[in-house]
Design a protein around this nucleic acid. Structure first.
Lengths: 224, 224
DNA sequence: CTCTTATTGTTAGGAGTCCTAATTATAGGG
DNA sequence: CCCTATAATTAGGACTCCTAACAATAAGAG
């Protein structure tokens, strides 16, 4: 049994730090949602689906927000009652449905997704370098959590077919997005890009190595 | 003021990053609490009070966990029913009560506060430098949130009477804690120290300036 | 082609969080 | 002493959130 091994204290402190921020995020969410007659769970669904015009299955939404499928069914019913969301059968699978926002729901979701908050005000007071470093650290954490199965697949640049790490090594915007065909800096890296297309696993691994090392791009990144 | 001004996109991305981590934290909390027959709200109270042997007033607990006082009364009653917590009158104020954990509650709270989690496993994969930088960034964010009134006063080293920033400038552990009379490094900085005693506001401001600048300790400095 | 097993979504039932508003009691200043 | 502020709780209600059970469809094995 490995129950005697106390974790490194710094890990507990870092978790505590995230917990403090999370509490503020939740309070911010209550404030933003409350003005629209919603609660945090409903607001989270709206914000998530606002970035997914094609809709998502209830099970996927539940996985993204880390609640059970029945809990999500409750929340989806509440949103449907408020005319902010619509459930339609999935033509590809007669068991499944697809949840999409109505026009009104989409507008509200976009508002919520870009609403200011105490946390963003605090983040704004960091230097540009600190912001970039923090984003980079978050990407590393999210990638680890994703590989551990703690969260579903995210639509991050670093796993995208269109991403070319260090294509412009040494410059302020060292990376490149082949979709928009433009250089991008660390601060521009998306955590949830609407144009994301997952690269093949081997390509992803190579991309990550190049990205994390700061090494020049590997050759032969064929656009399958 | 800031009317109609869209926030800097990087701020939204950083907030999204915190949101992803917060979802995992919540899932981890369910997992840790569920094993003990608790829910996240109860587990948070237990973890908070485990670090406060002297107890805390319900209103203060509610403020720390960012819920309303009536919500906290619900949760405290649930914990009292489970014999994990006790409410006693506050001798200093006949209106108030003090909530303390029972022995059993304290043991459970300490277990929860140091329980491992997916988030900590992910944090463990960062380099030591990244961990230190992240902790530093968190401290800055928490301080800003505190000053904005978004969270109650925290028991962080940087606001403590015993803290001497850069007392050993240039060394691996540049700071000093006069309480334990030992040098401390960035990784050792507490977010919630049981021995914390708030320094005077002017001293705090000077301490912060010295800390953030990396400059040697000075007396009597003006704030930002 | 049929039988089994897995998957998707929902309902059922219940505990408990979370809110606002109102209530009780005490504290503290003019 | 009165009047306002504060601490905590109760009242009432909406809703999240869980597990378990259910119905329907999909997918694979024989």
């Amino acid at each position: 049994m490995d129950h005697a091994a106390e974790p490194d204290p710094v890990l507990i402190r870092l978790r505590e730090g995230f917990e403090r921020v999370a509490l503020v995020l939740r309070a911010d969410l209550w404030a933003a949602a409350g003005g629209a007659g919603l609660n945090p769970a409903q607001a989270q669904v709206l914000a998530l689906l606002a970035a997914r015009p094609a809709g998502l299955r209830p099970k996927a939404i539940a996985a993204h927000l880390a609640v059970s499928a029945p809990s999500m069914a409750d929340t989806l019913s509440a949103l449907e009652r408020k005319q902010l969301l619509q459930r339609t059968p999935d033509p590809a699978d007669a068991r499944a449905v697809i949840a999409r926002l109505t026009e009104e729901g989409g507008a509200l979701g976009r508002t919520l997704a870009s609403a200011t908050s105490h946390v963003m005000a605090a983040l704004a007071r960091l230097s540009a370098d600190e912001q970039a470093d923090l984003l980079l650290t978050q990407i590393k954490l999210i990638r680890t959590l994703q590989r551990a199965g703690a969260i579903p697949l995210q639509r991050m640049c670093v796993s995208c077919r269109h991403f070319r790490p260090n294509a412009h090594a040494g410059e302020a915007q060292p990376h490149h997005c082949a979709f928009v065909n433009a250089p991008i800096g660390t601060r521009d890296l998306r955590l949830d890009c609407g144009e994301h297309e997952a690269a093949d696993p081997e390509v992803q691994a190579a991309t990550w190595t190049s990205f994390a090392d700061g090494s020049p791009p590997l050759q032969a990144q064929a656009e399958t």
